[in-house]
Design a protein around this nucleic acid. Sequence first.
DNA 1: CTATCGTTCAAGTCCGTACT
DNA 2: AGTACGGACTTGAACGATAG
Length: 287
Amino acid sequence: MRTSSMCYSNFQVPKFCKTLRYLVPSIRLASLGRTWAQNFKVLTTSSTTHESSANCFRSIQYSDAQAKIILDDKIVKPPPVNVLVFDIETTGLHPKKGGIIEIAFRDVQGGKNSCFQTLVNPEQDVPNSDIHGIRTVMVRRTDVPTMKELIPFLLQYIQSRQVLGGQVLLAAHNARRFDVPFLIEAFRRCSLDIPHDLLFLDTLPLAREVMKLYGPKASRKLSLQALGEFYRIPLEGSAHRAMTDVNLLTSILANMISDLKLGSTDLLQRTFKASDVNNSKKNEKKS
DNA sequence: CTATCGTTCAAGTCCGTACT
DNA sequence: AGTACGGACTTGAACGATAG
């Protein structure tokens, strides 16, 4: 039995989304034609535990509980914004030196194929297994995709979540400082650029806004874990695993959007593009 | 008119925090 | 661990008000 290192899952369409008839192009796994691609598993149940047959693999577990994000009328009406919460695990802190070893996405709208998670072969050893529990032997395998192999699939997934005429927004905690620079570097190594129209949302500044709202009594800690505790969100799975953190951030984001009473326009105002990250670095060098 | 004091704002510095 | 951001705090310049 081959190890399936990448998986999709469905989660049930929330009631508030049932009126939305987004056309989600089916992702043609067969077209990938790669060794690891053959191991994709399209999961059709609403709650899934996926386990590897290899002992060295930690089973990838995540809950497909219905996304709790609150999308009020302002969000689902024009301009339509579809938020994909994502998270990456890496071999270190430096985009130039480190590599991505796990990546997970979750479409907060729910629907078919709304979750995406995979280990990634960084083509280098993993020195920080104590952080996330992902070891070198788990990712340096032929059936684990490299970023070069994964990127086309990734882009296809993101595109598939795009509402017709709408905007996909990729949200991550500390995205501007961490996740996006890693993605930029990963794309650069493949001689590619992140699509110019792709918008990112950093939830860290949002957390600061929320804590301002709650005043001086609120916690100064803004880490994902601290925010989870602040909103009393139970952690499902191991911390510092991509899908666990994605699920946690999805719930946190829902709470923050509710607290700040944000509509889609407000969210869009807080977005940035990959080129903004590059430009800010260039500007810093100039100064 | 000049000197002094208080206020405001911008810029700079330092520290804590975030990510793995 | 490395790097950058945000907040708190400090510093200094600019300006207005007031007294001598």
